[in-house]
Design a protein around this nucleic acid. Structure first.
Length: 656
DNA sequence: ATGATAGGTAAGGGTAATAGCCAGGG
DNA sequence: CCCCTGGCTATTACCCTTACCTATCA
C-alpha cells in the first residue's frame, strides 16, 4: 500500500450508523462506534487495524457527474484500547467541467485537483517514494500529485494535521518529535500528518523539517559568517551538516550559500568577454546554435565551471533574463505587452496561477526573454495590486485587466482590488489604497437561513466616526449587562452575542440604546480623538462582511494605521506557531510607504472557528471581501482588518 | 541474504524578494 | 547640476525535486 499497491485481500465491513462531526478546520470527522464484531482490533492490543474508507456515491462513479468530489481519508485511533476509530475526510468539490474543459496543453499536468473521482489520493501521501521507479509505478497506476511550492491551504492543513497529532498524544512541542524522538518513537508521525495532502511523504517530510528547524530562516549572512563559512568549507568540505552546526545554520542553508560564492566569482556587470563565453558554453553543452532559444535542459553547474568567473546562479540568471533573448533577436517589452500578458493569462481561463504553462505562453513572443522571465514579469505586474495575495486568482486577473489598461497616473499607485463577489460582480472594483476606516456589517444567519442567503435583514452597521451607531434589526435585541450603558446583543436564536468594542487605550467607548430607537445602540467615544475602533467578535454564527461606505472621507493617519497593524499582529501571534516564513512577510508589507492592511490572520481565526447549531459562518476574504448575494452598491470598498476574535482564537489555541 | 521501510544526504534547478545601478525628467 | 523616481539587473535566501545512500527489521 505504501507504494500504491492495493493489498491482495481486503476485508469489507459495513456499518449501519456513523456519526459525523465537523472540526474547527472544516474537516468532517466520521466517528465509527466500536464494532461488536471481532474484526476491530480483536487481539485486544492497542494497535488498531488499519482501515480505509471507501466512499460510494449512489449514482456510481460516472466521471461526467456534474459535481465531482475527491476525498482524502485517514483513519485515526481515538484512544488506546478503544476499538472505535475516527475518519477524517477532506473533501474538495469541483464544479461541472471546470479544468476538464480546459485545453490540456495549457495546463500544467501536475495538480491534485485533476484527479478522478474516487481515486485514492492517500496512496500518494502515504508513499515514501524518491526513486524514478517508485514514481513511474504510481504514475502508471493513474496517480497524480502536487508538486512545486506549497500553497497556504496546504500549509494550513499540514499544521492542523500536526496539531491533531500532538493533541492525540499529549505532546506540546512538535520539534520534540521531529528532532528528538527516535524513528521508533515517532512511528507514523509523517504518515499521519501527510493525510489530505496530495504530496509524496518525502515532500511532507522535507517541508516539516524545514518548517521547524530554527536554524532555517535565519536571514542574511553577515560578512563574519561568510568568512567563517569559507574557513569551515576548507576544513570540512561538503559536510554541510557539520558546517551548518558550527555556524548555527541549517545544512541546506550553508550548502546554498556556498553555491553562491565561488572563489573566482566576479560580481556586478558582466563583461562582453564573459557574455561571449557564457553563450559559447551554453550552446556547446546543449548542442544548440546562436539564435536558438534555450531555456531548459542546461546544467548550470557545468556552465559555471566552464565560464569560470561566475556562479551557476549568475549564469542561469544572465542567460534566461538577458543573453538568450538578446542573441535570438528579441524585442523590448512594452506596455502593450503588459496588457497582452494579462489578457493571455485570462484567456487561459485557469483557476489557479499554478496551472499556467509559461513555456507555452512564452512561445513565439519576441519580447519575452524566457518563460522564467515572463513569470517574473507577471509577478511585477501582479504586485501592483497590494492585496494580490489575498485575492482569488480570477478576481485578481479581472482586476488586473483594468489596472494594466489604466492611465499611467493610476498605474503608479498601489491598488487594491476588491469584488463583492467573484461570481456576481460583472467587473471587479479597483480603488486606490487610501487609509480609510470602513464600516462593518455583521449579519447573523439563523440555522434555517443558508449561507449568504440572508434574505432577512439582520444587520448591524458600524459606521465610522466618533459616534458609532449600530442599527439593530429584528433578530437581535439588547440585554442589559448590569453596567449602565452596556449591553449584550442577543441574537434571535437565543445565543448571547457579546460584542465588545475596544480601541486605542486612550479611547473609551460605551454603548447605549438609542433613546429614539430601541433598535439602535449608540456608541459614544469619551475622548475627542476619533480613533480607530476594533470590534471584537466572539460569536461563530455570524457573517462578517464589509459593506458600502457612504462616507470614505474619514482617513486615518499613518500612525493610527500602524497601531492597528500592531494590534492585529499581536492578537494573531498565536496563530503562527511555527516560525514559518509567512511571518516575516507579514511584517514587511510596507509598500511604497502605504501600510498595507492585512486581515489574513484575522480571517484565519474566524475561518477555523467552530460552527454550531447550523449557523453559517462566512468570513471576509483577507481583503475584506466575500461573496454575497446582497446588493451592495459601492464601487469603492477598502478593507480594514479590524475584526478579531480573541475567544475563537483561544478556542483554537486551547483545544482544537 | 533479501527486500521493504523509514529515513537521510548532497546536488542542483528553481522562486521570490530585494538591493543596487542607472537613465531620464523636473 | 542635483535630486528623485522608476525600471531593469544582479544578488541572495529559501524552496523543491531527484538521485543515491544507510540503518533497521521482518
Amino acid at each position: 500500500m505504501n507504494t500504491g499497491d492495493v493489498p491482495a485481500a481486503v476485508t469489507l465491513e459495513s456499518v449501519s450508523s456513523v456519526t459525523f462531526t465537523q472540526d474547527t478546520d472544516g474537516n468532517i470527522i466520521l466517528h465509527c462506534p466500536q464494532n461488536d464484531g471481532e474484526d476491530l482490533g480483536s487481539d485486544g492490543t492497542t494497535e488498531p487495524v488499519h482501515k480505509r474508507l471507501r466512499l460510494t456515491s449512489e449514482d456510481g462513479e460516472d466521471p461526467q457527474d456534474s459535481t465531482s468530489t475527491e476525498y482524502s481519508v485517514v483513519t485515526l485511533p481515538i484512544t488506546e484500547g478503544d476499538e472505535s476509530f475516527e475518519v477524517t475526510m477532506t473533501a474538495t468539490e469541483m464544479r461541472d467541467g471546470e479544468l476538464e474543459s480546459e485545453d490540456p496543453s495549457e495546463i500544467l499536468d501536475k495538480d491534485s485537483s485533476v484527479q478522478k473521482k474516487g481515486e485514492d489520493v492517500s496512496a500518494v501521501s502515504q508513499a515514501w517514494f524518491t526513486t524514478k521507479e517508485d514514481k513511474d509505478t504510481l504514475v502508471n497506476k493513474g496517480h497524480k500529485w502536487k508538486q512545486g511550492m506549497w500553497s497556504k491551504e496546504e500549509i494550513d492543513l499540514l499544521m492542523s494535521n500536526i496539531e491533531r497529532y500532538l493533541k492525540n498524544r499529549g505532546i506540546h512541542d512538535p520539534t520534540e518529535i521531529i528532532f528528538e524522538m527516535s524513528k521508533e518513537e515517532r512511528k507514523d508521525f509523517y504518515r499521519s500528518i501527510a493525510c489530505g495532502l496530495n504530496r509524496p511523504l518525502f515532500a511532507v517530510y522535507r517541508r516539516v523539517l524545514r518548517m521547524y528547524d530554527n536554524r532555517n530562516h535565519v536571514g542574511k549572512y553577515t560578512d563574519e559568517e561568510i568568512n567563517k563559512l569559507k574557513r569551515l568549507r576548507e576544513k570540512y568540505g561538503n559536510d554541510w551538516a557539520t558546517i551548518g552546526a558550527a555556524l548555527g545554520r541549517s545544512a541546506s542553508s550553508v550548502k546554498d550559500r556556498c553555491r553562491l560564492m565561488k572563489d573566482t566569482c566576479n560580481t556586478g556587470k558582466w563583461t562582453e568577454e564573459e557574455e561571449r563565453r557564457l553563450a559559447e558554453v551554453v550552446h556547446e553543452l546543449t548542442g544548440t546554435e546562436v539564435g536558438d532559444v534555450v531555456t531548459q535542459g542546461v546544467s548550470w553547474a557545468s556552465v559555471a565551471e566552464l565560464v569560470g568567473t561566475r556562479s551557476e546562479k549568475q549564469c542561469r540568471s544572465k542567460w534566461l533574463n538577458y543573453l538568450n533573448w538578446k542573441q535570438s533577436g528579441g524585442t523590448e517589452w512594452t506596455k502593450e505587452d503588459d496588457i497582452n500578458l494579462v489578457h493571455r493569462i485570462a484567456e487561459l481561463g485557469v483557476e489557479d496561477e499554478n496551472y499556467i504553462n509559461w513555456d507555452i505562453l512564452a512561445g513565439g513572443w519576441s519580447s519575452v526573454r524566457s518563460p522564467q522571465w515572463l513569470r517574473s514579469k507577471w509577478w511585477t505586474i501582479k504586485r501592483q495590486v497590494a492585496n494580490h495575495k489575498e485575492l482569488p486568482f480570477p478576481v485578481l486577473l479581472k482586476g488586473l485587466q483594468d489596472v494594466v489598461e489604466a492611465p499611467a497616473s493610476v498605474m503608479n499607485k498601489v491598488v487594491v482590488i476588491g469584488s463583492r463577489s467573484a461570481n456576481a460582480s460583472p467587473s471587479p472594483v479597483t480603488a486606490l489604497q487610501i487609509p480609510v476606516q470602513i464600516p462593518v456589517q455583521i449579519t447573523h444567519v439563523s440555522s434555517s437561513d443558508g449561507a449568504g442567503g440572508s434574505s432577512e435583514s439582520e444587520t448591524i452597521t458600524l459606521n465610522s466616526g466618533a459616534l458609532q451607531t449600530f442599527e439593530l434589526l429584528p433578530s437581535f435585541h439588547l440585554q442589559p449587562t448590569g453596567t449602565p450603558g452596556t449591553y449584550f446583543l442577543q441574537t434571535g436564536t437565543n445565543q448571547s452575542l457579546p460584542l465588545t468594542l475596544s480601541a486605542n487605550p486612550t479611547v473609551t467607548l460605551t454603548a447605549a440604546a438609542s433613546p429614539s430607537s430601541p433598535d439602535q445602540i449608540i456608541l459614544h467615544s469619551l475622548t475627542t480623538d476619533n480613533e480607530n475602533v476594533t470590534v471584537q467578535m466572539s460569536h461563530p454564527g455570524i457573517i462578517i462582511q464589509t459593506v458600502t461606505s457612504e462616507d470614505l472621507s474619514d482617513p486615518l493617519d499613518q500612525s493610527e494605521l500602524e497601531g492597528e497593524q500592531e494590534l492585529k499582529e499581536e492578537s494573531s501571534e498565536n496563530q503562527n506557531n511555527s516560525g514559518e516564513e509567512e511571518r516575516s512577510e507579514e511584517r514587511s508589507k510596507d509598500i511604497q510607504g502605504v501600510k498595507t492592511l492585512d486581515s489574513s490572520k484575522v480571517e484565519e481565526t474566524v475561518e477555523s472557528s467552530g460552527m454550531d447549531e447550523g449557523a453559517v459562518l462566512m468570513v471576509p476574504s483577507p481583503s475584506g471581501f466575500i461573496p454575497t448575494n446582497e446588493d451592495i452598491r459601492t464601487d469603492s470598498v477598502l478593507p480594514l482588518g479590524t475584526l478579531t476574535d480573541p475567544i475563537l482564537e483561544n478556542q483554537e489555541e486551547g483545544s482544537d
